[in-house]
């Protein structure tokens, strides 16, 4: 009797879970649905809930010169940001994990505090600074702000990974005659690969999706992908080409979703173990 009661209750919760999943995923479905339809279907008085006449026309309309210019800009800024952030954060993480020196704890506190500063609290003076240095509306200027913005978290993330490799492994290699430098690079470094990938992906996601700073320090003729996407929707209501906008959203979102799935588990686990202990 009791068993039956339990399974029905489980089924009920299951049904609720699926219903909520559908509601929450709906905007994502709506993007895909819109991207695959001809524009006439979307302007019909009744919305079409499934793409009946599938077409890739919208993607054709969206893959124009402007898109590729924005793609190039976004890729440049993102790659610079990933490369610099990973290298700087890696050496800094080694320093705070493997060395003990004066000011070490202060550095960690500063890093954690900077991580909390929202871009809105600094972007006016960053905008003025880039103006004065002739870096306004340049790849270099935007990348500089991005590297500085992602660095605190990447340092903190990598520090955890370096801490996770026992020093004893290196010391054993040193006893066998390796130099400290060589011991680190042959023993510890390969074990840090997952950490380097996670922090690189994190920097990628931030730079690729970033909107606020790009609005502030880039001109409208020099847009990263999020601003390009937004540019398509600010024309007058009648003229918005919704299938094209949705196709653009698909193009911007797919790489992000793929990368996000790769690192997600690691990040959530991290927060909880930190939180529960505190």
């Amino acid at each position: 009797m009791r068993r039956i009661g339990r399974t029905t209750r489980g089924r009920l919760w299951g049904a609720v879970a699926v219903a909520l999943a559908l509601v929450w995923a709906f905007p994502a479905y709506w993007i895909l649905n819109g991207a695959l339809q001809p524009i006439e279907a979307l302007r019909a008085p009744t919305p079409s809930f499934v793409p009946t006449d599938l077409t890739l026309d919208a993607f054709g309309r969206v893959l124009d010169g402007e898109f590729f210019a924005s793609l190039r800009l976004s890729l440049s800024v993102t790659l610079i940001c990933v490369a610099l952030a990973v290298v700087c954060a890696f050496v800094a993480a080694v320093a705070i994990s493997r060395f003990r020196f004066r000011g070490r704890v202060s550095f960690i506190i500063v890093v954690l505090t900077i991580q909390m500063i929202p871009p809105e609290a600094l972007f006016i003076s960053q905008y003025r600074m880039l103006n004065d240095w002739n870096l306004y509306n340049t790849i270099a200027g935007l990348s500089l702000l991005y590297v500085a913005a992602v660095l605190p978290f990447t340092v903190w993330l990598l520090r955890g990974f370096v801490d996770g490799v026992p020093v004893e492994l290196e010391e054993a290699a040193m006893v066998d005659g390796c130099s400290r430098f060589r011991a680190f690079f042959t023993i510890t470094f390969p074990l840090l690969a997952p950490g380097l990938i996670a922090s690189g992906v994190f920097a990628f996601l931030q730079a690729w999706n970033e909107y606020t700073l790009a609005v502030v320090v880039m001109e409208p003729d020099n847009r990263t992908l999020p601003l390009w996407l937004r540019g398509m929707t600010t024309v007058s209501n009648q003229a918005i080409d919704w299938p094209a906008v949705m196709a653009g959203s698909v193009l911007v979102a797919v790489p992000v979703i793929v990368f996000f799935m790769i690192v997600q588990t690691k990040m959530t686990q991290g927060l909880v173990s930190g939180a529960v202990k505190g």
Binding site: W24, P226, R230, V252
Partner: peptide
Amino acid sequence: APRVPRVVLQVSMLLCWAMPVIAAMTA
């Protein structure tokens, strides 16, 4: 929830979490 519906809900949440903010705004 039982295993399968739970995973469905988790995948949906993950999809929404991963969505770039401006792509979601257009939708």
